[in-house]
Amino acid sequence: MNLEWMAWTLPTAIFFVVIALMLVGMTIWQILSPSVPRRGFLPIETTRGDRLFIGLLGSAYIHIAWIAFTNLSLWIALAIALVWLVVVMRWG
């Protein structure tokens, strides 16, 4: 199968593999111990999946804001996004 039209690059491939692994991991986690909706610091009641979605969406916006307002390395933005993701998943 020729995937040249999709114009793959190594960084984007890694990005999608990580997202896919997260989804698979979340599914297995859900089967082993089903998530119960709860309320953390977010203003809404969330399940684990909701928090992952909020975490990923927030991470995307952190990166966009980083590009918009600074010229510093994107690795710092990635680190902030990871911290945000962990905080939302644990205390969100």
Binding site: W5, A7, W8, F16
Partner: peptide
């Protein structure tokens, strides 16, 4: 996914 791939490249042709 293809759009994400395009967004990080300068594409002149196939």
């Amino acid at each position: 996914m293809t759009v994400v791939n395009y967004s990080v490249q300068d594409i002149f042709g196939p």
